[in-house]
Simulated scan of single mutants.
Amino acid sequence: MHGERLTSASGDSFPRSRYWRAISLSKGLKTKNLTLSYGSSPIIRELDLLIPQGKITVLVGSNGCGKSTLLRSLARLLKPRTGSVLLNGKEIAKQSTREVAKQLAILPQGPDAPEGLSVIQLVKQGRYPYQSWTKQWSKEDEAKVNWALEVTGLTSLAEHPVDALSGGQRQRCWIAMTLAQDTDIILLDEPTTYLDLTHQIEILDLLYELNEREGRTIVMVLHDVNLACRYAHHMVAIHEQKVYNQGPPELIVTKQMVKDVFHLQAQVIVDPFFGTPLCIPHGKGRQLSEQPLTAMGS
Results as ranks from 00 to 15, higher is better:
residue 207 L to H: 06
residue 3 G to P: 05
residue 135 K to G: 03
residue 124 K to H: 07
residue 90 K to A: 13
residue 280 I to H: 06
residue 157 L to S: 15
residue 136 Q to R: 15
residue 154 L to M: 13
residue 102 K to I: 05
residue 89 G to V: 08
residue 23 I to K: 04
residue 47 L to D: 01
residue 184 D to E: 15
residue 79 K to Y: 10
residue 81 R to C: 00
residue 123 V to D: 05
residue 106 I to Y: 10
residue 6 L to D: 07
residue 196 D to W: 09
residue 99 E to W: 11
residue 124 K to N: 14
residue 238 I to M: 02
residue 240 E to C: 01
residue 143 A to V: 13
residue 35 T to F: 02
residue 54 G to V: 03
residue 248 P to T: 13
residue 19 Y to K: 10
residue 162 V to N: 09
residue 141 D to V: 10
residue 99 E to F: 11
residue 244 Y to I: 05
residue 191 P to F: 02
residue 7 T to F: 07
residue 152 T to H: 10
residue 254 T to R: 12
residue 36 L to W: 02
residue 18 R to Y: 07
residue 289 S to W: 11
residue 51 I to C: 05
residue 75 A to N: 15
residue 204 L to G: 12
residue 54 G to K: 05
residue 12 D to F: 02
residue 194 Y to S: 11
residue 154 L to R: 14
residue 279 C to S: 13
residue 188 L to E: 01
residue 62 S to D: 02
residue 72 R to Q: 07
residue 294 T to Q: 12
residue 173 C to N: 04
residue 203 I to D: 03
residue 128 Y to F: 06
residue 150 E to R: 11
residue 168 G to M: 11
residue 172 R to D: 09
residue 237 A to L: 12
residue 265 Q to I: 00
residue 13 S to F: 13
residue 100 V to C: 04
residue 286 R to T: 11
residue 171 Q to I: 04
residue 60 V to K: 00
residue 124 K to I: 01
residue 95 Q to V: 04
residue 75 A to L: 06
residue 52 P to H: 08
residue 50 L to N: 09
residue 226 N to A: 05
residue 13 S to V: 01
residue 276 T to P: 01
residue 244 Y to D: 08
residue 179 L to G: 14
residue 252 I to V: 15
residue 51 I to G: 07
residue 238 I to E: 01
residue 39 G to D: 02
residue 158 A to I: 06
residue 17 S to A: 14
residue 120 I to P: 03
residue 31 T to G: 03
residue 83 G to P: 02
residue 62 S to I: 02
residue 151 V to L: 11
residue 2 H to G: 00
residue 42 P to A: 05
residue 223 H to E: 01
residue 55 K to W: 11
residue 113 A to M: 09
residue 19 Y to W: 13
residue 264 L to E: 02
residue 221 V to I: 04
residue 170 R to T: 05
residue 11 G to E: 14
residue 278 L to D: 06
residue 155 T to K: 15
residue 153 G to S: 12
residue 240 E to K: 06
residue 67 K to F: 00
residue 170 R to D: 03
residue 69 T to R: 00
residue 212 E to V: 13
residue 254 T to E: 04
residue 280 I to L: 15
residue 84 S to E: 09
residue 215 G to W: 14
residue 145 V to M: 06
residue 168 G to N: 10
residue 120 I to C: 07
residue 232 A to Y: 13
residue 92 I to K: 08
residue 60 V to S: 05
residue 18 R to T: 10
residue 261 V to S: 10
residue 216 R to P: 04
residue 211 N to A: 07
residue 256 Q to I: 08
residue 19 Y to M: 14
residue 233 H to S: 07
residue 73 S to G: 12
residue 223 H to W: 04
residue 65 C to R: 01
residue 219 V to M: 06
residue 43 I to D: 00
residue 221 V to T: 03
residue 8 S to D: 14
residue 257 M to T: 09
residue 91 E to N: 11
residue 99 E to R: 15
residue 16 R to A: 15
residue 181 Q to L: 11
residue 90 K to V: 04
residue 53 Q to Y: 12
